[in-house]
Design a protein around this nucleic acid. Sequence first.
DNA 1: TTGTTCCAGCTTTTT
DNA 2: GCTGGAACAA
Length: 721
Amino acid sequence: MNVTSIIESLNDAQRQAVTAPSQAMLVLAGAGSGKTRVLVHRIAWQIQVEGVEAHSILAVTFTNKAAKEMRVRIETLLKVPTHSLWIGTFHGIAHRLLRRHAKQAKLPETFQVMDSGDQLRVIKRLLNTLNLDDSKWPPRELQWFINAQKDEGIRARHMLESPDLHHRQMLTIYRAYEELCDRSGLVDFAELLLRGHELLRDNQDVLDFYQQRFRQVHVDEFQDTNTIQYAWLRLLTDGKDNLFVVGDDDQSIYGWRGAKIENIYSFQKHYPNHQVIKLEQNYRSTGTILKAANQIISNNSGRMGKELWTDAGEGDPCSLYAAFNEQDEAYFVVERIRSWVNEGGLRSDAAILYRSNAQSRQFEEKLMATATPYRVYGGLRFFDRAEIKNALAYLRLIANRNDDASFERVINTPTRGIGAKAIDDIRIIARDQSLSLWASAIVLINQRTMSARATNALIGFLELIKGLATQADGLELYEKVKLVVEKSGLTELYQKEKMEKGEEKVENLEELVNAARLFDFDQENEEGMGELDMFLTHAALESGDSQADDFEDCVQLMTIHSAKGLEFKLVFLVGMEENLFPSQQSVDDVSRLEEERRLCYVGMTRAMQQLYLSYAESRRLYGRESYPRPSRFLREIPSELIQEVRMRATVSRPVTAIQPKPAYLKTTGTYKLGQSVSHVKFGEGVVLQIEGSGAQERVQINFKQVGVKWLMLAFAKLDVL
DNA sequence: TTGTTCCAGCTTTTT
DNA sequence: GCTGGAACAA
């Protein structure tokens, strides 16, 4: 294989980074400057040219998606499979180490990974057993508190007893939570990292082994690492100067979840022999878009300093639309997308980016009304769905009887006559005798204190689990899943549920069986884990796409956060208003405001050809009409880069007063209550309500197939029947 | 046990 | 103003 194929397509800075001799390296890669490319080629270079074994290379990312993409790209470049190459997320790699060295990590061999939903439930239950009022101790806050401590590497026993009563109580709960997790063999996400760090820190032999094994350690999105992740990287590369990190301080947008942008500065201190390479040539956007983005980000302090440029030409100016209200904003955006599509553009090249999820609705309604296919990112993921979690809980109980979280989840799902009283009794025994719920249930049965009926119900449940475990023995993975789905009564439960909801749940359960069938055990197989354990881990660590692949050409709707790393020809950055973007909670804190500004920078640099910015002069928020000021970020863009768009004929409008409805805009009178109508997409229905007038006129229709919906008359293609 | 009502909360998200 | 979850009633 020849060396040129690895470096020929690279620019000077990229090539320098890729071919540098082994040393600590910080690659500051601006948006669209070929960050992943450098990482991929660097690894290929080391294997191909430096003769480093794939086995001795570690590459860490934040998302499974990024890890997968990197592996595929390396394999494509090298034209060989790279099985022994360790590429994974921080959590995935930590998990792998903990499995291998469970004993040294002081974990049971059968430990299971909890996702954040599981964690929240465990905390709620814990508050219950501690007889604490969860309105006074909000579970979410506690979850946040515990994770924040763990992210900083702090265990309950490290924390000082504080005179502050509130703090002391938090500490007590943290301690109790740790005990409960230990007893149940459950490990939350933050714990994976913390344990992973402790494993290396406290076991010199393990540390030596991996330090020697990994000749090269690569990290993607380094600006997003938190304290414990960086500490872990440092242990692994201690004294070896072999840490290669790629990141962009200007794209650090996860400070609120513990990411430490400071790690970039610390890196330079901790690895004094490091080299810094900046990638500033951008291959994505037009010159105008880059100039605007550069201007915005230049308002931040303490940057490493970077300025994106392109030789691709200036392109069109950015467009700014001042909408009358949020409806008008949505109308404008959807109209622009329609003309983009009419001119031959793909819907999937157009993205609507917003600061908060709640903003998506307006756009969805307008897109729906114009029958424009769209896809909203975010929301429930496959493995997060209640029916899937229930099925998984049965499987987890089969794998580990002590998994209290799962036990509690399914003991009465579907209902089998085990009421709150019985469950309470079990909890009390568990608490008093430090037993798992499973063991406590057996104790409770033997006490013979319950009614015969309750006892039988409980015995029935325990027998069911035991029976499933026996029957599952020796079956293929997918057969086990199928067995559980059918015999647990879940399918039956959802079949009885009315409407499409239940049907969908049954389908999801079938999909779970299918997922198990397709589960690539060999590829994921690690450290001799059982196939079922591996599958359960996979479900926790990789929650799956929120939507099945949709091959239809769709407009993309998502938050700016989730757009990071993506690019679109046509981008709408909407809701550019003070208190929305930047968000209310960020405006009085400089560092948070700067993070909002970085977010704005991230949003703008998603655009390849055309960037539209918009704000509404009036917006209904939490049921209240507000008159926000345009976002300060808009003022930070030089006016010569911006073109104001006016859609309406109206030239000016008093800023203060609420617009009286012009007399010429009145209800058309075509639609009456009870009128039968038909819609291209939704079929036949009956008009229930009419509201607003003119362009804002909406009708509520009860469709036979899809139920009640509000439609904008201006767009809805309705026929009177 | 189910359906209803009430009430808090309301950035951003991956693992 | 809406939504999801919990408390409550039947």
